[in-house]
Amino acid sequence: MILADLSRSELERRLAGPGLRLRAGPVVTQIQSPLGAVADGVALHYAAHPIEGSDGFADFFVRVDRPRNLRRWLHPQAVFYIDGEAPFTPLPLDQAFPLLEWGLNWCISAHCHQYLIFHAAVVERSGRALILPAPPGSGKSTLCAGLIHRGWRLLSDELALIDPATSHVIPLARPVSLKNRSIDVIRAFAPAAVLSRPVHDTTKGTVAHMQATPDSVRRAAEFARPAWIVMPRYEAGATAALTTLPKARAFMEMVNGGFNYSVHGRKGFEALARVIDLCACHTFVYGDLEEAAKLFDALATKS
């Protein structure tokens, strides 16, 4: 059963009541929220995702709700709870769905230590994963969003989950977080892309989420083998160009973007080294998304 099989009233009943058990890749989250903005976001972005029965296992139990104080009425806010605890500062109520997404990212990166987790977008073609590690503001999500509308499958926009035993990248198809100018860039580049209404004045500026493509969600059980590590950087006016990145440097870049590399100790070092062995490593500068998509198309075709 997928979420779209539920009526809107049943979705709202579950969210406001016993909770909705939603599967994204290997992770099942029980979500509770009486907030309309959360119901809207979940309905839009997770329509194709499987839902689980209430008697099964859930990795995380989360709730997005109003705070239990006067802020409930004055300058309404939303709070993210996990197991009844609120680890983050409340945000304005209109940021309730982004808060849920950021909270879920935190749940996974802070707890799913069966995987090596890196801050990176990952897309796949022909069973081969293109890993895009980069700091915020580098154009990583924009590139990721563009590529999945040019024949690549979304594995993750934010968290690269790598099985340390097999080196496979585990799909985690969830909404792609677009910020500021990249929202209009993607609207123009992929008119068919489904975006949420932008939310302004977040800590990241204006944010809109883009729905994962149905194909990415449907193929959530298909792992991918790492083939490329590419560190992207958007630069206005730049011609798209790949430059070889020495593997040892790529290793250290991955370490710097690791959420739980140190948790894995020696096994993490060895597992990451196997990933580096499998990958061609590059830096990448681009100023035009169409040109970038063509370059990656050629990369996937020739190698």
Binding site: P246, K247, A248, R249, F251, V255, Y261, G265, R266, I276
Partner: peptide, 18 residues
């Protein structure tokens, strides 16, 4: 240690640092 093209990455098991 792991080496790629002359560059070496070292993992220190005592400190957990790379």
């Amino acid at each position: 240690c792991r080496e790629w093209n002359g560059d070496i990455v070292v993992f220190n098991q005592e400190t957990g640092s790379t």
